[in-house]
């Protein structure tokens, strides 16, 4: 669309001062965004630097930045991946329900309903997680520890507080569900009617039509949306900070009282009380989080955008 308006003025007509100012302003705003993003990286790096060069024993824990951040990174990745594992299939199913199963008249309203899940502030999910979900999880956790204890994830012993990684993961899954399903929903909605009809005309049932036409068409969007959800889960702070009872350490055990921290939650918990090199260390961990989410998000966007071009060519 911009190109067609541009073409009309391709002859470099003399520019009016008003035009020049306005074009300058809007270009400036765009460039500012790039500057801000670069600034985020630069300022974090500046503030993290003292921790990166400090002697190991000055870092909280006394063993250097890498040793300090590693368990946090582990906790972050573990919680985010597990949350995605729950959320991604649900998101696809919800997107399918709204685009292909729900009666068309109420489909849009149902979409809003799911979007409302995204509107709930994360602090409230945290409170909900610890007040409602955690007590509910105790009994099933004990059952899991008893019956499926041979799986490392459920090794137990189950805590009686319910403030476990399992609950944090479920809360995270609920939180990333709306964004993930919204992106997938958009892709499913754009499935060419032609291809849907082609499979129906061959005598496909609704599910067979979805498998032949809708899912292949939306595949890269599903991947992209999942990564987007992963990015959200990696950076989610408050819900994890409130729910998780932490003791550091690296463990896959989801239902015990000893849970690994996540980077974001650790910052929220420790930052207000920290001074000096501890603050720099926290910022260094934030920098790691920033780098990880940036990579995940860039990859997600690249995947989604590639699909957009591909479908445009069709």
């Amino acid at each position: 669309m911009p190109s067609s308006t541009e073409r009309t003025r391709a002859h470099r007509a003399p520019q009016r001062p008003g035009d020049r100012v306005f074009a300058g302003l809007s270009t400036g705003a765009g460039v500012l965004i790039l500057v801000v993003l670069a600034g985020v990286a630069a300022f974090l790096l500046t503030e993290a630097w003292p921790a990166l060069v400090a002697p190991a024993e000055d870092i909280p824990g006394g063993e250097g930045v890498a040793i300090y951040i590693w368990p946090l990174l582990f906790g972050t990745l573990l919680s985010a991946f597990l949350a995605l594992l729950i959320a991604a299939p649900l998101a696809v199913a919800i997107a399918l329900f709204i685009t292909h199963y729900a009666p068309r008249r109420i489909a849009q309203a149902l979409g809003y309903l799911i979007d409302l899940l995204a509107a709930v502030p994360s602090i409230i999910y945290g409170l909900w997680g610890i007040a409602v979900l955690a007590p509910l999880s105790v009994e099933p956790s004990e059952w899991l520890a008893e019956n499926l204890g041979f799986i490392p994830l459920f090794a137990g012993p189950a805590t009686s507080t319910g403030r476990t990684m399992l609950v944090a993961v479920i809360v995270l899954a609920v939180m990333i569900l709306p964004i993930t399903s919204a992106v997938v929903r958009e892709a499913f909605r754009q499935t060419p009617r032609l291809h849907e009809e082609a499979s129906l005309a061959l005598g496909a049932t609704r599910w067979e039509m979805i498998r032949m036409a809708v899912l292949p068409f939306g595949r890269s969007s599903i991947i992209g949306a999942s990564m987007l959800g992963l990015g959200r889960a990696l950076g989610e702070t408050m819900a994890v900070a409130i729910v998780l009872s932490v003791s550091g350490g690296v463990t896959f055990n989801l239902i015990s009282s000893g849970n690994p921290k996540t980077i974001a939650a650790n910052i929220a918990l420790d930052f207000p009380e920290s001074t000096g090199i501890a603050v720099n260390t926290l910022i260094a961990s934030g920098l790691v989080l920033f780098a990880v989410t940036l990579l995940v998000n860039m990859a997600a966007r690249a995947v989604i955008n590639r699909r957009r071009e591909f479908s445009g060519a069709n």
């Binding site: 965004i33 801000v36 993003l37 990696l234 950076g235 934030g286 989080l289 998000n297």
Partner: peptide
């Protein structure tokens, strides 16, 4: 990409 910056960052 910016829409994906974690709020804590």
């Amino acid at each position: 990409v910016m829409t994906g910056i974690p709020s804590i960052v």
